[in-house]
Simulated assay, not measured.
Amino acid sequence: MQQLAASDRIEPNLIPNSDVSISEDFKFVVRSINEQQNIAGDMMKAVDTGQSEDVVGAMVASQKASLSFSMLMEMRNKVLNGIDDVMRMSL
């Protein structure tokens, strides 16, 4: 868990197949963000129970998960705004 939380890079090419549909891409991204949140939660739990003393690593993992979730929400809002704009267009 610490190796995943300690990685400094966010790699945009994590999606294995580029031929899949956009819904599959979004599912993959949501699962990745969920995994980050689970890792951060596990690290925080380990610190709280005294199994680990890596408070900084747990906080960094928590911030990464929070930032990823915020970015996902912003993407969702942009997509919904784009759909609303298309719906308001007159033909």
Rank of each mutant, 00 (worst) to 15 (best):
L4T: 12
V30K: 15
E11T: 08
V60T: 11
V20N: 08
M59P: 01
Q51H: 05
R9T: 11
Q51F: 08
Q36C: 07
P12L: 14
R76N: 14
D19V: 00
A65H: 00
A6V: 02
M43C: 01
M71D: 11
N17H: 14
L67I: 15
S23H: 07
D84I: 14
N34E: 14
D42M: 07
V55D: 08
G57I: 01
L80M: 14
G50E: 03
D85E: 10
G82P: 01
V29S: 04
F26H: 15
D42R: 01
D54I: 01
M44E: 11
G50W: 03
A5T: 00
V47D: 00
E74D: 14
A6M: 03
L14A: 15
A46G: 00
N81E: 13
A58G: 02
V56P: 00
Q3N: 08
M73W: 07
Q3S: 06
L72Y: 11
I22D: 10
A6E: 09
V29A: 11
S7I: 10
V55W: 04
D8T: 04
E11P: 02
M75Q: 15
V20T: 03
E24T: 09
F26R: 15
R9I: 04
V56S: 03
A65W: 02
R9W: 09
K27D: 15
Q36W: 02
V79S: 12
L14R: 07
V60D: 04
V79K: 10
S18I: 06
S68V: 02
N17E: 12
K27Y: 12
N13P: 02
Q51P: 01
L72H: 06
L14F: 06
D42N: 03
K27N: 08
S7M: 08
M71N: 12
A61M: 00
D42A: 09
D85W: 06
Q63L: 11
V60R: 05
M73A: 15
G50C: 03
D25S: 06
I33K: 01
A58S: 10
L80W: 11
N34V: 13
E53D: 04
D48F: 03
A61E: 00
S90A: 07
T49A: 08
D19R: 07
D8I: 07
R9N: 15
L14W: 06
E24R: 10
M87S: 09
A40H: 00
L72E: 05
E53I: 03
N13R: 09
I39L: 05
E24H: 09
N17T: 02
I10Y: 13
F28P: 01
D19W: 04
E24K: 08
D48T: 03
Q2P: 00
D48L: 06
M89E: 13
S68G: 04
S32M: 05
Q37L: 07
Q3T: 07
N38R: 09
I10H: 10
M75K: 13
K27M: 13
M44T: 06
M87W: 06
K45V: 05
V86K: 09
R31Q: 11
I33H: 00
D42L: 08
F26Y: 10
I33P: 02
S7N: 11
K45F: 12
S66A: 15
N38L: 10
S23Y: 09
M44L: 06
V30S: 12
S70K: 05
E24S: 07
A6Y: 02
V79G: 03
A46C: 02
E24I: 05
A58V: 01
N34W: 04
M75Y: 12
V86I: 14
A6N: 10
